[in-house]
């Protein structure tokens, strides 16, 4: 076996992997150039689809920020020595980690009121905020488990050494343990981020104006089969070009951390 035959498949798979970044958008572009009437139609609808996708990104960002804040807190609380505090948090994590995202989005949409009263003023409570909460709940449960796992992966001797140096439990956690957890929990956190980003498509089922909803609107308005096909390919391309780089980066970080 020569070096050339050894490296041949490797190089081709590398090209393939990098093609992944542009393959779907390229397909859309080539098709709309090949059939110009279709291309013109699509061009007209692109701003509408883009406004939908902006909503996806907004929901994903808000849900991840909220989910991370709550999740890290709950991950720490899962390890506190007081049972009264620990058991409810463990129950929360177990229930919502096992619950389908769609069910939670339905729950928040139908249980929360459509407006809230603050000091006599009626504030609207829009659907997309409910979807944010519906996705932040499972995100917080996953992130709580990730945080707990990361804290437990730090050797106990570090806690003992910090105690010996006069750090309190709180100080040890904040200044010694958590900074190390940051690095360890980054790849799984990115997996959750990708999964939540893809979960935002579920918000279309409760009437939030996001990308999938926009594509359905567009395809019912245009009523052309080839337009329907290309509209859904655009949806796939949008999610793919957002999530594929995250997945690639996650794998690279995992490999690097495993090697270290």
């Amino acid at each position: 076996m020569t070096a050339a035959t050894l490296f041949q498949p490797r190089r081709s798979s590398k090209i393939l992997r990098n093609v992944g970044f542009v393959a779907l958008p390229l397909l859309v572009l080539v098709w709309s150039l090949a059939d110009l009437t279709l291309g013109r139609e699509l061009l007209e609808w692109i701003p509408y689809l883009a406004s939908g996708f902006a909503m996806n990104i907004l929901i994903a960002l808000c849900a991840m920020v909220l989910g991370t804040l709550v999740g890290v807190l709950f991950g720490i609380l899962e390890l506190v020595p007081y049972r009264l505090l620990r058991y409810p948090v463990v129950a929360y994590v177990q229930i919502f980690r096992n619950a389908p995202h769609l069910v939670l989005i339905f729950a928040t949409t139908y249980i929360f009121p459509f407006e809230i009263v603050v000091f006599g003023n009626y504030l609207p409570f829009p659907d997309w905020v409910k979807a944010v909460i519906g996705l932040a709940i499972p995100a917080s449960a996953y992130i709580a488990e990730i945080t707990r796992g990361a804290i437990l992966s730090i050797p106990t001797t570090q806690w003992e050494a910090a105690k010996g140096l006069g750090f309190s439990r709180n100080q040890t956690l904040r200044r010694i343990i958590l900074p190390q957890c940051l690095r360890r929990s980054l790849p799984p956190w990115m997996n959750v981020a990708a999964s939540i980003t893809m979960g935002t498509a579920l918000a279309s089922l409760v009437g939030v104006h996001e990308l999938l909803h926009a594509a359905t609107d567009a395809s019912t308005a245009v009523r052309r089969l080839d337009f329907t096909v290309i509209a859904y390919i655009v949806v796939m391309a949008a999610f793919f070009t957002l999530c594929y780089p995250i997945a690639r980066l996650t794998r690279r970080l995992e490999r690097r951390f495993n090697a270290a």
Binding site: S13, L16, A194, M198, A201, T228, V235, F239, F240, Y244
Partner: peptide, 26 residues
């Protein structure tokens, strides 16, 4: 391996709901 790899990557990185709607409608 190439077509399967492409399929796996597309499946993993797009929402299941979109795949379902695409399959069902298209």
């Amino acid at each position: 391996s190439t077509p399967v790899r492409a399929f796996v990557e597309i499946t993993r990185n797009t929402p299941t709901l979109v795949q379902l709607m695409f399959s069902f409608l298209v």
